[in-house]
């Protein structure tokens, strides 16, 4: 099982890194999500991988090395929640950058030959900023 989990983490990281290095925002967001899955699996695996050994010690004197360490599971839970929030934020920001800049290229309109002119009156209007 260790080998399977290790391969899964490796493949997820490889795909995540490849996608993060792409030039459009959508693959980057998906890449970040894959990378965070890999990280969560890794954290989970640090608590020992064993079947049918929930972290509940049934009697005094049981050998604790036979049970799963519950703390990494709590860490994974925290990491999942934080990762979920961050992913939601970057999804909204990618959308905003597409609407503001007229392109989903990660380096903006200058780097993108396919960019639309960055004028979208509907969204200009939502800009609540006031020029100084």
């Amino acid at each position: 099982m260790e080998a399977l989990i290790a391969v899964a983490i490796g493949v997820l990281v490889a795909c995540g890194v490849y996608l993060v290095l792409r030039a459009r925002t959508f693959p980057v967001v998906v890449g970040l999500a894959l990378f965070s899955y890999a990280v969560n699996l890794y954290l989970f695996a640090t608590g020992r991988l064993s079947n049918l050994a929930p972290p509940i010690v049934p009697r005094v004197g049981a050998d604790p090395s036979q049970f799963v360490d519950p703390l990494p599971q709590a860490l994974v839970l925290t990491a999942i929640v934080i990762g979920f929030g961050m992913t939601a934020f970057i999804v909204v920001l990618s959308l905003r950058s597409y609407l503001t800049l007229g392109t989903d290229h990660i380096d903006g309109p200058e780097a993108d030959p396919l960019a639309l002119p960055p004028t979208n009156p509907r969204h200009e209007g939502t800009d609540q900023g006031t020029e100084r």
């Binding site: 993060v20 970040l32 890794y42 954290l43 990762g83 920001l93 950058s97 990660i106």
Partner: peptide, 27 residues
């Protein structure tokens, strides 16, 4: 403004990768 959105995208992406690495290191 447009430059802030663009800089924000880069900043957030590199920091999200950083957060993942942080968890690997701590784990």
């Amino acid at each position: 403004r447009a430059p802030r959105v663009l800089a924000g995208l880069h900043y957030i992406t590199i920091n999200l990768v950083g957060s993942g690495l942080f968890l690997i290191g701590v784990g």
